[in-house]
């Protein structure tokens, strides 16, 4: 299978971002990598070129800097005039206790995990809406989290950011439907990555970035609306979402 479309990867040096980029590269696709750390981007780019990417460009950006979003998207447009996929992989896993103790911490987490993506998506949506393309040619794929399905005391700041983003994407999907650009919400469970390195791992609920990336790639190719990855999270979250609040508020989750 060959797939030579161009994909933009926000958060290209994240574990899942790298794994997804590899799949695109192996299909012969072109990639525009966006991340904070120039040397990590360069290392990633060299790997992807060797694996078969037809073209790899790197853009260094701190995505918390909203003022630069417009110029960043202009740079992206300058690199390739026909962008098929926009992937969002960046995020932080804040310390809930620290967020409770300090609004600054909460604000930072909400900024990176929700506001920054919302800002970029606003600009991207306005662009794709004016493009005349066939249905299925373009897609926006954003990683949120199962944590956004229901607020829990152990991580509701992160949950609020991801849940807010999930709602934002629902609206955006509705809005962009006419233009033929799909919007895919990806809700992963636990992934074994550096972001989760402080958590004791093990057990069947943990997935590798490679497995998650394959699920995301397939969902993106099909222009799916929403996926859980691995998909066993769907029934789990269905139960969690349906526990009555009177009971849920008493649980220590």
């Amino acid at each position: 299978m060959n797939n030579n479309e161009t994909a933009v990867i926000f958060g290209a040096t994240s574990a899942v971002g790298q794994a997804l980029s590899k799949i695109h590269a192996e299909q012969g696709g072109a990639l525009i990598l966006v991340g904070r750390d120039e040397s990590k981007l360069d290392v990633t780019a060299a790997d992807l070129r060797t694996r078969g990417a037809s073209q790899v460009d790197c853009l260094v950006a701190d995505l918390d800097d909203f003022d630069k979003h417009q110029s960043l998207l202009q740079e992206i447009e300058n690199k390739a005039d026909d962008i098929a996929k926009y992937y969002f992989f960046y995020g932080t896993l804040p310390d809930q206790k620290a967020c409770e103790a300090s609004w600054q911490e909460s604000h930072k987490a909400l900024t990176t995990n929700f506001l920054s993506a919302a800002s970029l998506l606003t600009l991207i949506a306005n662009k794709v809406e004016t493009e005349s393309k066939n249905k299925g040619d373009r897609g926006i794929i954003v990683v949120t989290s199962v944590a956004g399905d229901r607020g829990r005391q152990s991580n509701y700041i992160y949950g609020a950011a991801k849940g807010g983003l999930t709602l934002f994407l629902q609206g955006l999907r509705n809005r962009l439907h006419k233009s033929g650009c799909s919007v895919t919400t990806v809700k992963p469970g636990f992934i074994d990555t550096p972001m989760t390195s402080d958590i004791e791992k093990g057990g069947p609920l943990w997935a590798t970035p490679e497995k998650v990336a394959v699920d995301i790639y397939k969902a993106a190719q099909k222009g799916k609306n929403e996926i859980y990855t691995p998909n066993f999270w769907m029934p789990i979250m269905l139960i969690i979402k349906n526990i009555p609040e009177t009971i849920f508020k008493k649980l220590s989750l």
């Binding site: 574990a15 290392v43 990633t44 060299a46 790997d47 060797t50 694996r51």
Partner: peptide
């Protein structure tokens, strides 16, 4: 296993 990048070919 995370150090799994090609550098040059």
């Amino acid at each position: 296993r995370s150090l799994n990048r090609f550098i040059h070919f």
